[in-house]
Design a protein around this nucleic acid. Structure first.
Lengths: 251, 251
DNA sequence: CGTTGGGTTGAGCTTGTTCAACCACCGTGG
DNA sequence: CCACGGTGGTTGAACAAGCTCAACCCAACG
């Protein structure tokens, strides 16, 4: 029920055994998420300090990192995989707010000491899971990190604000087109290849994100395939006509 | 085009003339917005300091405080009236993200030095308009204010996250019901009476907020009136059956 | 007194949902 | 090795919800 630590990386142990501040002590230096969010402004010393306020965890597909309403535990920085931040609804339904890509943080928001959203691994995922107390303390004593936190909050707000327009104004095909384009943008910003475009989320995930039924998602993809806008092979999408896709996603 | 200062309050002038730190120097002490957002943690001295980083402005109905894409100017704390934060769409349409009540801040978010949203006065409104540079400096040197900013960002994020679910999952009547309940909650939180409920926004505003057409809004209200859930008189709504309304707004 | 803007109401159409059948894939157990 | 059930995805037909277009109402205002 509570998120279990599936595997704690070996590297932190090595760092402890070598109790010197050797550059090899923390895995962050080679972490693909290093360049994003709160880790971005950090040099070695402070990166190490932050690293040691948490543990590394891995998560299976469909495993929950945190659940809305549960006492607010760790803050998660995703280092690999994709996490869906969502609001649970009656009868097993949910509204996915946004997808968290490697480098970004989730589980930050709390309401009266409880997580404000669900966080669910869409793929196998790894996280640095920081003690909330220590994380806040670290942020409080590092101006640039604090700025990074505010920047990240602002970016989420913009993302979600845009998504509101998608939900409020676009037709089903438009929403799917917009979803794909957003993914392409976000993947680009996070150094993930987009040809082919990795699409690990199920039809149900996409439906819960776009406020549609899975059948409608399926039909939208069928339409896009028929019009030769894209091609789908399992979890890989190849976009042939980006321009056309962009037109469909226009308001 | 640029938001014009309609009237600069007389009070700041008085405070300047009396160059002592008399408690009458700033109007904040009697400001209804004092207890909210960034002003909340401030005592007299710091409140005065913040106050002096900006000017007071008043806005007419339908006037824009700021426009998405324009160079990011002041940050606005609304002291009276209601402001709609929205994203403009082609052909004069828009998606309203949220309504800003007295006490809250808008115009904070920027993207590459430009405002990230539109801000439009729904009613006559007054604001404290702070120089962005000075505001950031003030926040940077006041830990508790900085926390207030992050808290406010988090609250917006939750608000908008919830609204995503409304747009994605609810039927038209449900959306209208949810809108009214949200308004009641927010009014309560901001010390505004809710019997009757002041409804200054036009059908078009509500439609742009809920992702519906004005005709649909009209029909939803008609349905609620027929079912004796509420009563409407011009800009005043009296809710008779809050429970029923809550059921309609359920997911 | 005509015009204008905001709101309501009706009729027909479009879009997405619902419900159902069906398919491909995959792991399990007989 | 094949039969089986489970999961995720696709497709079809009927239905319902919201949109479009149009007419109409009312109050405010010049």
């Amino acid at each position: 029920m509570a998120p279990a630590v599936i595997s704690t990386q070996a590297l932190p142990r090595r760092s402890r055994s070598s109790h010197t501040q050797s550059a090899k002590a923390i895995p962050c230096l080679h972490c693909p998420a290093k360049a994003f969010n709160v880790c971005k402004p950090l040099g070695y010393e402070r990166q190490k300090e932050l690293f040691e306020t948490g543990v590394q965890q891995t998560w299976r597909r469909r495993q929950f990192l945190f659940r809305m309403g549960d006492p607010a535990g760790p803050i998660f920085k995703v280092t690999s995989g994709i996490v869906a931040v969502s609001r649970p609804l009656p009868e097993g339904r949910r509204q996915i707010s946004l997808f968290i890509l490697p480098g970004e943080v989730c589980g930050y928001l709390e309401i009266n000491g409880n997580y404000a959203f669900d966080g669910e691994a869409i793929t196998e995922a790894r996280t640095c899971s920081f003690s909330r107390r220590k994380f806040h303390a670290f942020v409080a004593s590092n101006r640039d990190v604090d700025d990074a936190v505010k920047t990240a909050l602002g970016e989420r707000l913009q993302q979600v604000g845009r998504q509101q327009a998608v939900l409020g104004q676009l037709t089903s095909t438009g929403r799917v087109a917009s979803f794909l384009l957003t993914l392409v943008n976000d993947y680009n910003a996070h150094g993930i290849q987009t040809r082919p475009l990795w699409l690990p989320m199920s039809r149900a995930d996409i439906a819960d994100y776009l406020g549609l039924r899975i059948e409608t998602i399926s039909r939208a993809f069928a339409k896009l395939k028929n019009r030769k806008v894209l091609e789908i092979d399992n979890e890989a999408v190849v976009i042939h006509d980006l321009k056309h896709l962009a037109e469909l996603a226009e308001f």
